[in-house]
């Protein structure tokens, strides 16, 4: 699809779905690499999330993330990311979903995921070397499903989410929260948990 067609397609995305896509984009970016100064700056200056009589967990997690971004310097955040999620040899906290699923089934799950991505017409960019079950990649697929296919039924988002993100995100976030080396990524993990909880509840309405 060319850029003009994408722009047209984007206008068909409902505001609440665009917001979800934006949260996925942010999580994908934060889980792919430590934030740079520009991202920390815009996060620090972000508005509060309005809650309209609903659950306030997402709003308070967002407020905490915004405050953490304001207090964090980019070098420290990037060092933290590299220390915790990359490391030499085995990372302290694996950013790969299959790590948190049945260990014996990891290869099988990855193979199935690759098949699904091919079916969606997605392939890794030239610069992306990480296996496809990286949480950043999974969030990026969700963002893609929401904005690039606004006509597609949300059942497809639900199915992908339930297959790859839902069973793995809680132990992943809990590992981030339990690490003695995480600082900025603790509020990131709490925000991710709050956001995915909203996603689970909304998918439950389908």
């Amino acid at each position: 699809m060319n850029a003009a067609a994408e722009t047209l397609a984007r206008t068909a995305v409902a505001p609440e779905d665009q917001a979800r896509a934006d949260f996925y984009a942010l999580l994908a970016r934060l889980l792919y690499a430590g934030p740079d100064a520009a991202l920390l700056g815009s996060l620090a200056g972000a508005d509060e999330i309005d809650v309209d009589g609903g659950p306030a967990a997402l709003a308070s997690a967002w407020r905490e993330l915004v405050a953490a971004a304001a207090a964090m310097d980019p070098e420290a955040a990037q060092l933290e990311y590299d220390t915790v999620f990359v490391g030499t040899g085995k990372a302290e906290v694996s950013p790969y979903a299959t790590h948190y699923l049945t260990r014996t089934g990891a290869e099988l799950i990855l193979a199935r995921l690759r098949g699904e991505l091919a079916g969606l017409g997605l392939a890794r960019s030239a610069g992306a070397h990480e296996p496809e079950d990286h949480f950043a990649a999974l969030c990026d697929v969700m963002r893609h499903l929401i904005v690039a296919r606004p006509d597609a039924a949300p059942q497809e988002e639900k199915r992908f989410f339930e297959a790859y993100i839902q069973p793995a995100y809680a132990p992943f976030c809990d590992a981030i929260l339990a690490s003695q080396n995480t600082n900025f990524y603790k509020p990131v993990a709490r925000f991710a948990k709050a956001f995915f909880a909203v996603e689970i509840e909304s998918f439950g309405m389908l």
Binding site: Q18, D22, G45, I49, V51, E201, S202
Partner: peptide, 25 residues
């Protein structure tokens, strides 16, 4: 539900997401 929970129509997310410049390989 999404709007009530704050995950719908959140200008906050849009403002930040537009600044999510990937670290280009």
């Amino acid at each position: 539900f999404l709007v009530a929970a704050g995950a719908g129509g959140a200008a906050a997310a849009a403002a930040v997401a537009s600044k999510v410049a990937p670290q280009q390989p």
